[in-house]
């Protein structure tokens, strides 16, 4: 259970780690938009290089980053298979029964696969370089305008940070319960999928019981300290926009401009 790489913070002291979470979130969104604007090979190359530079700057080992791709490899594979067989323009390379493969399909499928991988790597790069708490702080700050339409931004943020906070606790708990049931002869890696699902019951039931108990305890502890989400609350660590954020924002802006220009053929300039 411990080697879930997707969305795990990787401690380091790189520029990306120190950057403001809001900058990273916006840069992430801009990058995702840019990935979906891509159509030429040059623009894909630009996306790849931008991501590669970001990865190198972050000092997160490439191995951990590749691990996060492994988590979605299955989804990527399915997308590729569906696209290869369903995209029917271009020259037919191979066909059998209702299945046809065209060169257009192959190209489209590989582009889709690249897009998906770029998406996963860019988002996990944000979580690799930002602790969950900072990330929620950044999100809360970014969503502040929604307060105008009476959207409970702070409540949502606290719900998110509690959820994030408890992920490691529950992973640990699952580990413990699994060990205890294994010690009583339970087997989790045998049999077909239904057998396996059934074998998980002795883990899931205690887990839910404990989750409800923890929720109760946490609610009581928050009440005991007079927690009130509606009040104007201050922060222990205030987010600050620094020079490195400006640099990061500019780099992203240049990147987006490049992608748009590639899409529009440099407005006929080249």
């Amino acid at each position: 259970m411990r080697d879930v790489a997707f969305g795990q913070y990787y401690p380091s002291n790189s520029v990306l780690h120190k950057a403001d979470p809001r900058t990273k979130l916006i840069a992430g969104i801009v990058y995702i938009v840019a990935v979906f604007l891509c159509d030429s090979y040059w623009s894909y190359l630009a996306c790849f290089s931008f991501l590669l530079i970001a990865c190198l700057v972050s000092k997160v080992p490439l191995k951990s980053i590749l691990k996060s791709i492994k988590a979605v490899l299955f989804v990527v594979l399915i997308t590729v298979i569906i696209n290869v067989f369903c995209y029917k323009t271009g020259t037919v390379l191979w066909s059998w029964w209702i299945l046809t493969v065209t060169d257009g399909g192959l190209i489209f499928a590989s582009k889709m696969a690249m897009r998906l991988i770029f998406l996963v790597v860019s988002t996990s790069l944000i979580t690799f370089t930002t602790t969950p708490v900072t990330l929620t702080d950044g999100l809360e700050s970014l969503l502040t305008p929604l307060k105008w339409i009476k959207f409970p931004v702070h409540d949502v943020a606290i719900i998110m940070s509690i959820a994030l906070r408890f992920i490691p606790s529950f992973t640990e708990e699952i580990d413990k319960i699994m060990m205890a049931q294994k010690a009583r002869g339970a087997c989790f890696d045998n049999g077909n999928i239904f057998k396996r699902a059934k074998a998980l019951l002795p883990v899931l039931i205690p887990l839910f019981v404990s989750a409800f108990r923890r929720a109760d305890e946490l609610a009581m502890a928050m009440d005991a300290r007079c927690y009130n989400a509606t009040d104007k609350r201050t922060k222990m660590k205030r987010l600050k926009f620094a020079w490195r954020d400006l640099f990061l924002a500019l780099a992203t802006a240049v990147f987006l401009a490049l992608i748009i220009m590639l899409k529009c053929g440099f407005f006929g300039l080249l």
Binding site: I177, A180, Q181, L201, P202, I205, P206, V209, S210
Partner: peptide, 8 residues
């Protein structure tokens, strides 16, 4: 705390 592993 083995009581937290009861499930049946």
């Amino acid at each position: 705390y083995p009581e937290y592993q009861l499930f049946a």
